[in-house]
Design a protein around this nucleic acid. Structure first.
Length: 475
RNA sequence: GUCCCCAUCGUCUAGAGGCCUAGGACACCUCCCUUUCACGGAGGCGACCGGGGUUCGAAUCCCCGUGGGGACGCCA
C-alpha cells in the first residue's frame, strides 16, 4: 500500500444513514436503528445522514415525514446531512438506469403483472421459491419474444446466474447467498420510476455511505444490492443488520399489535433520556453497565457487542430507567413539562406553591411524568377525596384532636419543623400514634392517604390552603 | 415450500475453550429503613434448547435435530 493510499484509507470518514420510508410514524424499532446509526457516526467522528425513502407515492405522506422528523427531534438524534428525499433525486436514478441498460447489466421486460402473478403461484404450488423465469433476459444466441407495442416495459437487473454473494456482516458475521437464489429484480417500474433496491444502492453510493446499519429484514436484499453496486462499478459499503424488537409479549410488533410511535412514549410520560438509554441497552451491551447518557454511549458504542438475536421489549425496565432519569432530570425542564401536562387536565400551575419544591418532594416517588403530574395536581387544585380513605381515617374520635391541631396550626410559624412539632404535640397530648393524626391530614389535604412526609407537604401547600382544606372537614 | 438468520435466568444481557459451583440489571420474594405510600439498603429465587462430536477441558468450536424469526412484490 502506498503511503498516500494509506493516508486516504485512514482519512476515510464514517458516513452512516437512517433511511425510513414515510408510511407511518417512527416506531421503536426504527428509533433504535436510527440511534445505532447515529451513535456509530458519532463514535467515529463521522456524519449521520437522514434520507427519506418516499418512492412509494401511494403510501408516503407528508404527515408521516413530519412524524418521523418529530420523533428524531424528540430523541435528539440530529442528522448532519439531509433530510434527502428520493423523489427529488429522480434524475440520479435515471442516469444510472441508463448506464446499466447501456452496459448490458439491465434489460427491458414486457411480462405483465398478471403473467408474473400466475408464474409465482405456479412456482409456490410446485414447492419452489418464486422467481422471475428470465423470459426477457437477453442471452447470447437467445431469441427474445416479440415486443408488445402497447406494453410499458419494466427494467430488470441482469443478476449473475452463477457464484455466490458473500459479505461479512458486522453484526451477524459471514453470510453467503448463492446467486441461483436470486432473480432479476425489477429496478424501474413500467412508468419509469425506480424501485427501492435500486434507489438505495444509488443513494448509498452517491452519498458515500460507509456503513449501512439497518434492520434484519433487509438481509435478503443485501446480496441483490451488492450485485447492483458491482454492476455500477461502485464500492460496496459495510453492512450491519440489527435484529428486530419484539413486543412485551414476545410477539412481532406490527401496526395492529404493539407498534407505537416514539412520540407516544412522550405522551405516556417517558423522558427521551430514558427511552434512549433503554433502546441502547436493547440488543447492545457494555459489560454490566445499565445507566449511561448519550455522550457515554457514543464513546462506548460498537457493532461487536450487538446481539444478533431478536430482543423482547420490556416496559418494566423502561419504567425503572424512566424513574431514574426523573430523579436526575433538570428541575426547570421538568417543571415546564409537568406544567404542560397539568394544563392539559385543566389544572393551572400557580407561582405558589412553588413547583420546584413540589417536584423535589415528589419526583423520586414517580416513574412517569403523567403520574408525577397527577400526584402533584392537588397542590394547585382542591382534590376530590377518596371516599374510602375519608371514612377510614377521618373518624369522629379523631376530629376533636384535629380541631385542636387546627387552632394550633393557625398560630405557628409556617415551617416544616414547626408543623411537625405541632402534630407531635397533639399526638403526645392525646396518647396517640403519629399516623392516627397524619393519615387524616393526608386525606384532607391530598385527598388520599399516601403522600410524602406530611409536615413537608403542609409547609409547601401553605398555611392558608391547609387551614381552608382542613376546615372543609371540621365544620 | 425454498433460502437466510437466531437460540444463556420470566425479560434485557455478561461470557471470544479453563477465571463459570455461569456474573449484572429489570421483575418477583424476604428483611432493614420508615410517619402512610414510595425511594433507598441487604439478602433470596432463577438460565447455558436437545443429541452427537472435537478437546486433557465446551455456555463458548463443529455437525445433526428441535424451536423461533425473516425474506421470497412494478412495497420499502
Amino acid at each position: 500500500m502506498h503511503c498516500f493510499q494509506f493516508l486516504a484509507f485512514i482519512m476515510t470518514t464514517v458516513r452512516t444513514r437512517f433511511a425510513p420510508s414515510p408510511t407511518g410514524f417512527l416506531h421503536i424499532g426504527g428509533a433504535r436503528t436510527a440511534l445505532f446509526s447515529w451513535a456509530y457516526a458519532k463514535k467515529h467522528g463521522g456524519q449521520f445522514i437522514l434520507r427519506v425513502e418516499d418512492t412509494d407515492v401511494e403510501r408516503s405522506t407528508p404527515e408521516a415525514v413530519q412524524a418521523i422528523l418529530d420523533g428524531m427531534t424528540w430523541l435528539g438524534l440530529a442528522h448532519d446531512e439531509g433530510p434527502f428525499y428520493q423523489m427529488q433525486r429522480m434524475e440520479h436514478y435515471k442516469k444510472h438506469l441508463q448506464t446499466l441498460l447501456a452496459s448490458g447489466h439491465a434489460y427491458h421486460c414486457y411480462s405483465s403483472k398478471a403473467e408474473l402473478d400466475a408464474l409465482r403461484e405456479q412456482q409456490m404450488q410446485a414447492g419452489l421459491k418464486p422467481k422471475y423465469d428470465g423470459k426477457w433476459r437477453p442471452e447470447d444466441g437467445k431469441v427474445l419474444p416479440e415486443i408488445l407495442a402497447n406494453v410499458k416495459p419494466v427494467i430488470r437487473f441482469k443478476n449473475p446466474k452463477e457464484g455466490v454473494v458473500a459479505w461479512h456482516d458486522m453484526v451477524k458475521g459471514d453470510i453467503e447467498i448463492a446467486n441461483t437464489e436470486l432473480d432479476d429484480l425489477i429496478i424501474a417500474r413500467g412508468d419509469g420510476t425506480p424501485t427501492y433496491n435500486f434507489c438505495v444502492v444509488v443513494d448509498d453510493w452517491e452519498m458515500g455511505i460507509t456503513q449501512v446499519i439497518r434492520g434484519d429484514d433487509h438481509v435478503n436484499n443485501t446480496p441483490r444490492q451488492i450485485n447492483l453496486f458491482k454492476a455500477l462499478g461502485a464500492d460496496v459499503p459495510q453492512y450491519a443488520h440489527l435484529s428486530m424488537i419484539l413486543g412485551d409479549d414476545g410477539q412481532k410488533l406490527s401496526k395492529r399489535h404493539g407498534a407505537v410511535s416514539v412520540m407516544q412514549y412522550h405522551e405516556e410520560g417517558y423522558l427521551p433520556e430514558a427511552v434512549l438509554n433503554y433502546l441502547a441497552r436493547l440488543g447492545w451491551s457494555h459489560g454490566d453497565d445499565e445507566i449511561f447518557d448519550m455522550v457515554q454511549f457514543c464513546q462506548w458504542f460498537d457493532l461487536d457487542h450487538i446481539t444478533p438475536s431478536a430482543a423482547q421489549f420490556n416496559t418494566e425496565k423502561l419504567n425503572w430507567l424512566n424513574a431514574h432519569y426523573l430523579k436526575t432530570a433538570d428541575l426547570t425542564v421538568l417543571a415546564s413539562d409537568i406544567t404542560e401536562r397539568l394544563a392539559k387536565q385543566n389544572v393551572t400551575v400557580l407561582a405558589e406553591p412553588s413547583m420546584m419544591s413540589v417536584l423535589e418532594l415528589y419526583r423520586e416517588r414517580a416513574n412517569n411524568l403523567n403520574q408525577l403530574a397527577a400526584d402533584i395536581a392537588y397542590f394547585y387544585q382542591v382534590p376530590v377525596a377518596n371516599a374510602a380513605d375519608v371514612e377510614k381515617h377521618i373518624t369522629d374520635d379523631i376530629k376533636p384532636v384535629l380541631q385542636a391541631l387546627y387552632v394550633t396550626l393557625s398560630k405557628i410559624e409556617w415551617t416544616a419543623e414547626q408543623i411537625h412539632e405541632a402534630i407531635n404535640a397533639a399526638v403526645k397530648e392525646n396518647e396517640l400514634k403519629f399516623p392516627k393524626v397524619a393519615m387524616p391530614l393526608r386525606v384532607m389535604l391530598a385527598g388520599i392517604a399516601q403522600s410524602p412526609s406530611i409536615d413537608q407537604v403542609m409547609a409547601i401547600l401553605g398555611k392558608e390552603e391547609v387551614i381552608t382544606r382542613m376546615n372543609a372537614y371540621l365544620q
